[in-house]
Simulated assay, not measured.
Amino acid sequence: MPTKHRIFTTPFADVYPHYVAKAEKKGRTKAEVDAILCWLTGYTQQQLEAQLEKQTDFETFFQEAPKMNPSRTLIKGTVCGVRVEEVQEPTMREIRYLDKLVDELAKGKAMEKILRA
């Protein structure tokens, strides 16, 4: 059995500040990062904050997501040199979707486009 990628067992709260910092460095806000996270996972703001407090790992964060947004499959492109739509492992694909959304936010894309509205 192949070993899990270490990102799966990394607490989401350890990476979250990096998502926020990446966005804020480009003039975007923590609220926009949170809106993306809530759109993607179905967490409310309170549920998101609870997951951060609990130090939930990435795998559990996505497994416990109330309702993954069906429009997330519209997310296309590359992040870290990987085409998100070609990632086979389900949890890794969810992580890459999130990475791509934060990238789009940092690049100045409008929220309506990021949220595939």
Rank of each mutant, 00 (worst) to 15 (best):
K107V: 01
I95F: 10
P90A: 07
T9M: 11
E94A: 11
E112S: 13
P70Y: 15
T44P: 05
V20K: 01
V87W: 08
K100I: 01
Q47K: 05
T41I: 02
Q45V: 11
C38N: 06
T9Y: 07
E104N: 09
I114C: 06
G81S: 04
T10N: 10
K67R: 10
P66S: 05
Y43S: 02
I7Q: 12
R96T: 02
A31L: 06
K54I: 01
C38Y: 11
T10H: 04
T9V: 04
F61Q: 11
V20N: 06
F12K: 02
A50N: 15
A21P: 15
T44R: 11
K25N: 11
I114T: 03
Y16Q: 08
E86R: 09
I7D: 14
T91K: 05
T60A: 12
K54E: 11
G42E: 04
H5F: 12
V102W: 00
A13H: 08
R96S: 15
M111N: 01
Q55L: 12
P17I: 00
I36T: 02
Y19E: 10
F8M: 11
P90Q: 07
Q47S: 02
K107Q: 15
P66A: 04
L115Q: 02
E49A: 12
R72E: 09
K76E: 15
E112Y: 09
E53P: 00
R116S: 03
P66F: 06
G42D: 06
E32D: 09
T10K: 15
T78V: 08
L37A: 14
N69M: 10
A21E: 14
E49Y: 08
P70G: 03
M111D: 01
I36F: 03
Q46E: 14
A21F: 06
A31N: 08
A21I: 00
C38P: 01
T9G: 11
Q51P: 05
K54T: 01
